[in-house]
Simulated scan of single mutants.
Amino acid sequence: MDINSVKEQARLKMKGFCGACKVCDGNWCAGQVPGMGGTGSGSSFKNNYESLKNIKFVMKTIHDSKNPVLKSKIFGKEIDFPVLGAPITGTKFNMGGGVTEEEYCIDVIEGCKKSGTIGMIGDTGDPACFEYGLKAIEKNNGYGIAIIKPRENSEIIKRIKMAEKAGVIAVGVDLDGAGLVTMKLFGQPVGPKTIEDLKELVRATKLPFIAKGIMSVEEAKMCIEAGVDTIVVSNHGGRVLDYCQGSADVLEDIVKAVGDKINVLADGCVRSGADVLKYLALGAKGVLVGRPLIWGSIGGRVEGVEVILNTIKNQLFQNMILTGSQDVNKIEKTIIKK
């Protein structure tokens, strides 16, 4: 099984939902929410793609970086490369039902673990989806992360306690899910949070707390004030707010502003090792990958997820050699030009 066969199988099973396009730029699926596209005009999805595409590498071939170090640490765990599985749900109404929700959770958690990294589970209006994710994590000895929709705090805390019982590595809230269309379909209220709301959630657990969906310096600083362990710079894959900036447009400013006071991850149109390296050069400590893992699960189940991740890992290794980068934890901004 290789990446082309995985994508071909995914394309067949996701007909009408995702074209598993050669260039995943948000054009084919624009406006398909529910579905795999970006909301409205699809511009926010496209901006993620364009902002990354417009960053160019400076090739370097006179150096001694022959065997780059890909290992890094996140939440106290050593991982083989700094790429995590993003939290995704909705296999039936977003992906076409090529796998069940339970199967998808198993595929991502196990596939990530076998590839040497950590998968995240998501939350949606159907409570069974979150429970399937927790079961997959529990089955893998707690090797996973639970991300919860921005519900009322009492509902979030209830799910944090469920996640703790399953033994997860970390918990968090995808703040970028505020106002998500798919949650409305289930009659589940979600919305923004205040700093006091975030403080309450951070106090509710001893686990590292993640705030996903930070797109401004101002809110990154608020997360520091609230005691958040890690932020994810993300516009929710372009699926919630039309005409939003791309993650790569704002990442560098956020990293400059927060320094080492908080861990910064990035999410948005990661399709290759080159995309990973660009985000690292902009200052992220790691990235999340989403849609490609859907292709992996639907096109090849656990093995398909492994194929996707190992392909990205190999590309990252090669790109590091060709930019003179020795260590993923010390990527220099000088390897890129905007």
Rank of each mutant, 00 (worst) to 15 (best):
L70D: 08
G37D: 05
V328Y: 01
E50N: 14
I262H: 00
V202T: 13
M95T: 02
G290I: 13
E332V: 09
P34V: 10
I231C: 01
Q245S: 12
Y132L: 03
M36I: 10
D25S: 12
Y132C: 01
I321F: 14
G37Q: 03
K278S: 07
P150V: 03
G167Y: 13
G238D: 12
W28P: 09
M183C: 05
P82Q: 08
I55K: 10
G283R: 10
T334R: 08
C18Y: 02
V171E: 00
V305R: 08
I3C: 05
T182W: 04
D253G: 05
G191E: 03
S154P: 09
F81V: 11
C244Y: 01
L180G: 04
L185Y: 11
V23E: 12
K285F: 03
D260T: 11
S216I: 05
N141M: 12
G304A: 11
K73L: 06
V6E: 09
G300F: 03
V202C: 09
A136W: 03
G299Q: 09
G300V: 05
D253M: 11
K193F: 15
D174I: 00
R291N: 13
G179A: 07
L316K: 02
K73F: 12
K73T: 14
A146E: 10
V6F: 11
D197G: 02
V171C: 04
D327R: 14
N67R: 14
I210K: 01
Q326N: 13
D197T: 00
L241M: 12
M36W: 06
T182K: 06
F57C: 08
A146K: 07
D253C: 03
M215G: 05
V181S: 13
V328W: 03
E225F: 00
K333F: 13
K161H: 15
K330M: 06
I336P: 12
K22P: 02
M222T: 04
V168Q: 00
F93R: 04
A136K: 08
I157G: 06
S115D: 04
A211H: 13
S297E: 06
A266Q: 04
L134T: 14
K46R: 15
G111H: 07
K330A: 14
A274Q: 13
K15R: 15
T91V: 14
V58H: 12
I147G: 00
L277Y: 13
K60H: 09
G98H: 06
A20D: 01
G85I: 11
